[in-house]
Computed example of a mutant assay.
Amino acid sequence: MARQPQRFYSTIAAWPLAIARALEQRGIDPAPLFSQAGIDRLQLQQNPDGRVAIDHMSQLWQLSEAATGDSSFGLSLADFAQPMHFRALGLVVMTCDSMLQAIEKLAEYHALVSDTVNVRLVHQPGRVGFVVDPLADVYTSPMASEAFFATMVRFSQQLSGADQLVAGAELVRPAPADPAPWQQVFGSPLRFAAPTNCLWFSRAGLAAARVMGNAELRQANENEVRRYLAGLQALGWQARVEQSILTLLVAGEPSLADIAARLGIGERSLRRYLAAENTSFRECLQRARQQLACRLLQQGVAVAEVAHRTGFSDSSNFSRAFQRWTGMKPGQYHDPDIMASPD
């Protein structure tokens, strides 16, 4: 039985192009780094709607950090990324009625920027959190989320003219020796080694901060964003559900209620949306478990640990399920000398 193809995770061309400009400002030639990361800068300049595979992008972040010797390098990208660089999504943000609506649109259509994370908004009495949850099976550099957060801070200042919108941040990276660069961008409170990345905004500030406010232009550009994402198959409910499941599996098997709450919709609606795509929550759960299991096995993780991390009670149950999914035993899957077919 042939193995299922791995999903292609990617990010928009705006990020590597901004990295190139940031490196050049520091007197560093980006060409060798782009070549080493397998990214064609000229091709991206000619096709700004293009995408970059996340593996290549993560390598470019790592190379850039090594070249600059600066773990806060991602923050500097806010100087080189403008709303227009994010194509139709940037125009959507620019034509919202308020910054609160703008960050809601960024959360809704985040996959245009990168489909390697889940984004959700957390609403509290005095503040709103823009939360970026990394997918459990995809590595992304901490600098990627920090660059996006720093860019959001800059966008909010440019579009609204307000300086007091950001109310702190939580970052997954370990506490750096010198937190000053992050404090300068995000203010306080600032927390490192957090379970996820969250940029906090003042609720009152967001509601009061007016933007351009053109409903007709916003709708036209939202339609363009939807067309773009439909081409990436990034807006499907199946994809959203499976990404959410992958994120939560490490803490135990999530329920339909857990995923519905995470996506901000009712359970009945989620069932209906999945049915419209000819699937179900149970099927999404099984696909997500299979995807994570295959990736972990390829990484050489022990079968017992894979069983635990994919929500199985023991290795025997996991092995039977894995054979049902793939037609082979878990031990065969990561052995290149064994054919991927049943005995």
Rank of each mutant, 00 (worst) to 15 (best):
P125W: 08
I28H: 03
M143A: 14
A177M: 10
D29E: 10
F201T: 12
R309Q: 11
P16W: 06
A302S: 06
G264I: 02
K105E: 13
R268V: 12
P189A: 07
L229N: 14
S319W: 04
N47A: 08
G205P: 15
A67F: 07
L256A: 15
Q25F: 07
A175K: 07
R262I: 02
A14I: 02
L249E: 02
R282A: 11
D115S: 12
P179M: 08
N317I: 01
L33W: 08
A177L: 13
L77R: 08
T140P: 05
S156C: 13
C198I: 15
A31H: 09
A257W: 02
Y109S: 01
D137P: 15
S341A: 13
E24F: 04
F130L: 14
A14Y: 01
G311P: 11
L17G: 01
G50Y: 15
Y228L: 14
D314L: 12
F318I: 15
G331D: 15
V92I: 06
S64Q: 02
R127I: 05
L296Q: 11
V52K: 08
G300Y: 02
R218S: 04
T279F: 11
A276C: 10
A340S: 12
A177V: 02
L60V: 10
V250Q: 15
E65T: 08
F80V: 00
R282G: 07
V117W: 07
F192D: 00
A13D: 06
K329M: 11
R210H: 13
Q25V: 09
A162M: 06
A14Q: 03
D29C: 08
A293P: 00
C294H: 00
I259E: 06
V113I: 14
E65H: 11
G300W: 05
E104I: 04
R203A: 15
R154G: 05
M328K: 07
L33Y: 05
L89G: 04
A53F: 14
T116V: 14
N118Q: 12
N47F: 11
V153M: 12
R7C: 02
S35H: 07
S64C: 12
R289T: 07
I54D: 02
P254M: 10
L89I: 01
N221C: 15
E267Q: 12
I28W: 11
Q43W: 06
Y228M: 11
R127K: 14
R7H: 15
F86N: 03
Y109K: 00
A102H: 10
W182L: 05
S341P: 00
Q101A: 12
L171N: 07
Q6V: 05
Q299K: 14
V172S: 04
A340G: 06
Q291T: 08
P174D: 08
S319Y: 04
G27Q: 05
P174R: 09
G168N: 03
A150G: 08
G205S: 04
L235R: 06
G331E: 15
A162I: 00
T11I: 06
Q332S: 12
P181C: 13
D97S: 15
I245A: 09
L256S: 13
K105T: 00
L112C: 09
Q46T: 10
F86T: 05
L285T: 00
Q290I: 01
Y273H: 09
A107F: 01
L100Y: 10
A180T: 10
I103F: 07
Q36G: 00
